[in-house]
Amino acid sequence: MPPSSDGPANHRAGSAVTAPSPLHDGPAKLAGRKRFGGETIFKFLSTGSGVFVLVLIIAIAAFLIAKAIPALQANEANFFTFEGWYPDDVEHPKFGIGALVIGTLITAIIALALAVPVALGIALCLSHYAPKRVATTLGFVIDLLAAVPSIIFGLWGLAYLVEPVRALSAWLHRYFGWIPIFGSEGPYGKSLLLGGLVLAIMILPIITALSREVFSQTPKMNEEAALALGATKWEMIRTAVLPYGRPGLIASVMLGLGRALGETIALAMTLGASFVISFDVIEVGGNTIAANIANRFGEAGEIGRGALIASGLVLFAITLVVNVSARAIIFRRREFREAL
C-alpha cells in the first residue's frame, strides 16, 4: 500500500513548515523587543557611565577651584613664580608653585628618558624575539611591577639607591660639569636624579605592556612582505613594526608620563623638599606638587590647605592635558588601522 499522507515524515515536515519564526514577527512585536530588550538597557547603562565620568571630572574641578580661591586671594606673592611656601604666615601669606612645577616636569622627563628605551627594547624582545613560553613568563614578571605599591619603591630607593646615585652624581659633575644640569659641586644624594630613577622603574611596566600589545598586533602580511623582499629581522621591525606601532607607542609613553606626574609617596621619600627653581638634577633638593601635598597637608592651616589644593588644581590641569593628548593619539592609531 502507498504510504499514508498522515505518516510521521509528513507530520514532521508539516511541523517544520508551520513553526513560528522570529523573521515573521510583526513590526509591533519587534519594536517592543527592541524597546524593552537588553540592547536598550545596555545602551542606557553605557551612556550613563560615560556621562557619570564627565560629571565626576567637572565636580572634582569645581571642588578644587572653590577651595583654592580663598587661598589665592590671600596670597601676597606671585602664585606661579614665587620661590617659597609660607601660606600659614598670619600677616603675610606667600606661596608659589614655580619650583614645584619645574621639579614635577624634570622628574617626569628623567623618568621617560630612562624608561622608554628600556621599555621599547623589552616590548620588541617579547613580541618578536623571545620564544613564546619565555615571552609569556617575562611579560608576567614585568606586569607584576605595576602591582608593587609606590611606598615600596620609595623605601627601596631610599635604602639602596641613594649611595649609587651619589657616586653617579659625582661622576657626572667630574666629567660633564660644564653642562648646567650637572653643575652642582655637592652634596649629593636625595635629588631630582634619584626621584627620576625611581619613577622610571615605576612607569616601566606600563609602557612595556602597552607597547608589547601594539607591536604584537602588527599585521603578519606586512612583516612577511618585508621579509620576502629580503629584509633582515631588524629591518623588518624598522620598516613594518615600528611605523605601525608608533601611535600606540606614543600613547603608552604619554600614559606613563601621566603616572609619573601624579606620583606622590615615592617622590616624597626620595626628594629634598626644597622650593628653589633649579634645573640642576644632581644637587640635593627638588620637590614636586604631589610630594609637597603629601608632606604638608597634615600640618597645614586653613590657608595652607587651600594653597595645597590650588597646587593640586594645577597638577589636575597638567594631567588632564596629558591624558586627553594620549586619547587623541590612540584615536589616530585606530584610524590608521582602519585605513589598512
Rank of each mutant, 00 (worst) to 15 (best):
V165T: 04
E163S: 03
L199C: 02
F140E: 13
V198H: 01
F182D: 03
L138T: 13
L194H: 01
Y188K: 03
A159K: 08
W178P: 01
S191L: 09
P149Q: 00
R133G: 10
A170E: 08
E185D: 14
P180Y: 13
H128A: 10
K132H: 15
W156A: 04
E185I: 13
L172S: 05
V141Y: 07
L158H: 02
S169E: 11
A167Y: 07
I201F: 06
P164G: 07
L155D: 01
G186D: 05
I203K: 02
I152E: 02
S127T: 07
S150W: 04
G195A: 14
S184G: 07
L161N: 00
F153T: 00
I151T: 10
R166E: 06
F140N: 15
R174D: 15
L126A: 13
A167H: 09
S127Y: 10
G195R: 05
A135L: 09
S184P: 08
Y129E: 15
P205I: 07
F176N: 04
K190D: 05
G157Y: 00
L168W: 08
G183A: 10
G195H: 06
A200L: 04
R166Q: 07
I142E: 14
L138E: 14
E163M: 06
P205S: 11
G139P: 02
G186F: 07
G186P: 08
H128E: 15
A170C: 07
W156Y: 04
L192F: 13
F140C: 12
I181P: 08
L161F: 07
L144S: 15
L199G: 02
E163I: 11
A135W: 04
G139Y: 00
H128T: 11
I181W: 14
G196H: 15
A135I: 03
I151N: 00
A130M: 11
P149W: 00
L158A: 09
E185N: 12
L193A: 12
A200H: 03
F140H: 10
A135S: 12
M202K: 05
G177L: 10
P131C: 04
